[in-house]
């Protein structure tokens, strides 16, 4: 017999193949998303005011603290999960979805609903069926409809005023708060004013709400960056734009005086934010190639109906939650065929 053979380590962490890995990480993906949000936020600060920054800081701190606390209570690894950046992404999306002048406690509450309620009660990152940011937005708009429909007045970017409002100051002063373009359009249409005369009001710019168009453009830029770095799939953004745009186009062509143009819909509210940052959340979106298309088209269509006929000003969040519900069903029915079962043409 040969000399006693050297044994490999038994408790090898690298149990089986593969023994090499691509240098990628969740962290990197999450921070790419955060980076891609910067253009939109910059446009926000430029057009609407720096008040949003206060809420961003507040939300980030709340999210990190809440996540760390929950992980600690559950005896799960804290450091690696808190630093993966997912909580920050959720927090920033919550802030971008809320009016930037909501009182500080509402931001904190929304972030807590998102991080604790919608994410960690389901087991944490990767396991939540509902988009945390959108769940929090819906919860807030149902619970505090008044506060959630007061947006900073366009043209008044004064930081002190916004600071004051965020700290919970008196809100019933005209000129400090306003309605969004979507709100103005809805109220106008329900008062039987036609689209053209609504659009001529000072609240509207080239295609959407004045100022808001620039933010949408910022998000579009960020989204294109994510597409270029292959962080997100093209499927959800494209099919969402088609879903919302096509529905809007059909009705707009039928009755242009009663329904605003598809461009208006795409440039208003959170359409661009949703297209590139919310629908592309891998955890709660459908995961099969065809499923992604169905998911995003569904959100687009629901968003248009809720915006046009519903009781709430913005329908995307509800659309996202509703389609989140359908994801298991969509995924199950769009499971791709495996190698050898595909219907691709054979030679």
């Amino acid at each position: 017999m040969a000399a006693q053979p050297r044994r490999n380590r038994v408790s090898d962490p690298d149990m089986s193949s593969p023994h090499i890995r691509k240098p990628v990480s969740v962290q990197r993906e999450m921070f790419t998303v955060l980076l891609a949000l910067v253009p939109g936020i910059t446009a926000y600060v430029w057009q609407i005011g720096a008040g949003i920054l206060v809420n961003l800081v507040l939300a980030s701190l709340t999210a990190l603290a809440a996540e760390a606390l929950v992980l600690k209570l559950r005896a799960r690894p804290v450091a690696i999960t808190v630093t993966d950046g997912s909580a920050l992404v959720t927090a920033w999306l919550v802030v971008l979805a809320l009016p930037s002048i909501v009182p500080w406690w509402l931001t904190v509450l929304a972030v807590l609903v998102a991080i604790v309620g919608a994410k960690h009660l389901y087991g944490g990152i990767g396991q939540n069926p509902f988009n945390p940011a959108m769940a929090a937005y819906c919860a807030m708009i149902v619970a505090y409809p008044a506060l959630m429909s007061q947006w900073p007045a366009i043209g008044n970017t004064d930081f002190t005023t916004q600071w004051h409002l965020i700290l919970g100051g008196e809100r019933a002063i005209d000129g400090l708060t306003g309605a969004t373009a979507l709100d103005a359009m809805r109220t106008g249409l329900r008062g039987h004013t036609d689209v053209t005369s609504i659009l001529s009001s000072s609240a509207f710019g080239f295609v959407g709400g004045r100022g808001w168009e620039w933010i949408a453009l910022g998000h579009l830029l960020g989204g294109l960056f994510l597409l270029a770095t292959r962080t997100i799939s093209w499927r959800q953004p494209l099919s969402f734009i088609i879903g919302l745009g096509l529905t809007a186009s059909v009705f707009w062509l039928i009755a242009p005086e009663r329904f605003p143009s598809p461009l208006f819909h795409l440039a208003s509210g959170g359409a661009m934010l949703a297209a590139f940052f919310i629908l592309t959340d891998p955890v709660t979106s459908s995961t099969t190639p065809r499923g992604k298309l169905i998911f995003a088209v569904g959100v687009g269509i629901i968003a248009w109906f809720v915006r046009t006929f519903g009781a709430y000003p913005e329908g995307i969040a509800f659309g996202v939650l509703l389609m989140n519900l359908c994801v298991p069903l969509i995924d199950r029915s769009t499971q791709p065929a495996t190698f050898g079962q595909r219907k691709e043409k054979r030679p």
Binding site: V24, T81, G123, V283, T287
Partner: peptide, 8 residues
């Protein structure tokens, strides 16, 4: 780390 269902 937990799976985020990114689909890679």
């Amino acid at each position: 780390q937990p799976c985020i269902r990114c689909g890679s």
